[in-house]
Write a protein that binds this DNA or RNA. Structure first.
Lengths: 357, 357
DNA sequence: TTGAAAGCGCTACCAG
DNA sequence: CTGGTAGCGCTTTCAA
């Protein structure tokens, strides 16, 4: 109690006193309920202005018992794919008068746990989870919290939980089929650590589809951290493993750009010597060299869908406790071409290192 | 009042009742003050667990009267440069038990205004402003708020305001001098809209340095939105303006990547036909093709410095109300080379469009 | 159209 | 070591 008494009278009471009204009236003015006489309203506004008053949002949330803030959990905001979803979600939220707070988990489950705690503690009106590290305990916590939740990609629909999923199977199939039609027979799937878990549809579908289309084809899997550097690193490991792919299928565009870099360093030409594909169709995919063949995932729509299912709105069609599927689409650019027959990579690498071809 | 009474007893009182203690004791346990008897402590913890209790952070902040949350305002989180600063800041904050909330302003001053309102409303313990749209009114609001503030790049030191600046003059000089030494005489500065304001040291220094080194050199300025697409767009405008630069100096790496893309489309080789430089030395600068010659700005250190000046710490040396200068460093990669003597661009463009050379 | 006052959930002071 | 309780700043009945 009595914390510095009224050293700072910039609260409702201060404004009320200065305007010669009650706090109730001030509150009404500040929340523009049109029940206050204009002259009174003006006095209040003036007083607030003079005191440089800013309502304490904690007190407000507490009193209201509900908030207009949405929480969003993201594994890797650095990856433009996630950023785009975040941006779309935020912009939809702002348009409807909601605020958004983000928490970056960096693929760390400790971070995730503490972020979830934070969001629940803030009593967010809804929570979007665009993460890949989700264990059953946390799921339980989330379910118990009663907060409306929308998961992206992982998670199973429940009472308060909706799930937005991209049909990664379909996207991956399109890529493999396309590469197969170009004559590729030695393909590698390059992912990041979280795509190694059982949840990775892309990895699984890759293997299945390769097996189905070309029973004699060879397939290989490799992974590193998500990101440019991770892509480069994984490419390095892949090539030094001895496997000689004619095509490298990356789990996302971001890593693919890292892969391109390593290939270039090795003097391996794309797509002449080896084809490379990404996933997501982020802006960068179009700006790197060569531009990436990839699969388009509509981040904007995903962001909007997530918002729509987070906040009540009689107009829109919510599908609470359901699953929503988004369809991907192949985008062919410059990084893929017909499979080279010879052991292109090996000879390139030799010549790059100055050895006789 | 009486809002659904005790439909949900997941509050201190609920836990207290269930554990057979007072709310004071529960509070003590939850804030692990080691004054509670172990057996009592255990009972409380158990009760909290059973009720799936999560403290209401708004109530906590309100009662405490102070928060351990830092606010951060960013113009463009999509630009990896800003993201890196944010990340470093956040990680420093977490290490010291602070939370961080970000607000992306998208270079929009309305967004900035509402974000500032939000931060003040949340009574953040400190505010980092990594923005370029800052008018004097807002500065006043911030000053009046009494919140410790650290500005990046813009803003003038005041009582509660520290300023972290990069010595852009020095960086820009290094680039221009370097290009000049390679024989470049027709240079263009490519910025984004906010670098057109009076605050842009980079633009100014560019002009000054060019004039100083080579009085007969030609210089041109062009700008578009920040980002990959903006870079491409600006490059397009630049080339179609008739000006034939031998070097294009971009305000940052992010836009430079967009520039590279346009040049490639036009069949203009980098650095053979024209040199391109970036600024910041973001990760991507090393991964694009050709890798960018740029100026390194230590984002990590900047983030840490900002944090250090936002929260009190007797150990570290704070410079409140002061200005802190960070030194940049030239990084030469593949996108720059000796100036081509002939009107390379024009002839390239002609041949690219199928006209006789 | 306005005011009085009861909370919202938590912390921290004062007693015991 | 524990309980009682006065706020923190705001919203929202209920009455006037």
């Amino acid at each position: 109690m009595a914390q510095a008494k009224n050293a700072d009278l910039r609260n409702l009471d201060g404004v009320a006193k200065r305007a010669g009204v009650s706090t109730a009236t001030v509150s009404r003015v500040l929340n523009n309920q049109n029940v206050v006489k204009n002259s009174t309203r003006a006095r209040v506004l003036k007083a607030a202005e003079e005191l440089k008053y800013h309502p304490n949002l904690h007190a407000r949330s507490l009193a209201r018992g509900k908030s207009r803030t949405l929480g969003i959990l993201v594994s890797n905001m650095e990856n433009p794919f996630f950023f785009d979803i975040y941006r779309a979600l935020e912009s939809a939220a702002h348009a409807r008068g909601y605020e958004v707070v983000v928490a970056n988990t960096d693929y760390s489950s400790e971070q995730l746990v503490s972020s979830v705690r934070l969001m629940i503690g803030w009593r967010v009106a809804g929570l979007a989870a665009i993460v890949s590290e989700m264990d059953s305990h946390l799921m339980q916590v989330l379910t118990d919290s009663k907060i409306p939740i929308v998961f992206y990609d992982v998670g199973t629909p429940q009472k308060n939980i909706t799930n937005v999923r991209v049909d990664y199977r379909k996207g991956m199939k399109k890529i493999v089929e396309y590469l197969h039609s170009l004559g590729h027979t030695r393909m590698a799937f390059l992912g990041h650590h979280s795509t190694l878990g059982p949840i990775s549809e892309r990895r699984k579908t890759f293997l299945e589809t390769v097996a189905r289309l070309a029973p004699n084809a060879e397939a290989q899997i490799v992974a590193a951290a998500d990101g440019l550097e991770g892509g480069r690193q994984a490419a390095r490991e892949l090539l030094s493993s001895g496997f000689q792919p004619t095509a490298i299928l990356c789990v996302n565009d971001f890593m693919a750009v890292g892969v391109l870099r390593h290939l270039r360093d090795q003097g391996i030409r794309v797509p002449d010597d080896v084809s490379v594909t990404g996933f997501d169709n982020i802006r960068l995919a179009e700006f790197c060299s060569p531009a990436l063949t990839t699969v388009h995932i509509p981040r904007e729509r995903i962001g909007q869908t997530i918002f729509g299912n987070l906040v009540p709105d009689k107009a829109s069609d919510r599908l609470i406790g359901q699953e929503i599927l988004v369809d991907p689409e192949l985008v062919v650019r410059e990084s893929t071409g017909v499979a080279r027959q010879t052991q292109a990579i090996e000879s390139r690498q030799r010549s790059a290192s100055g050895l006789p071809v």
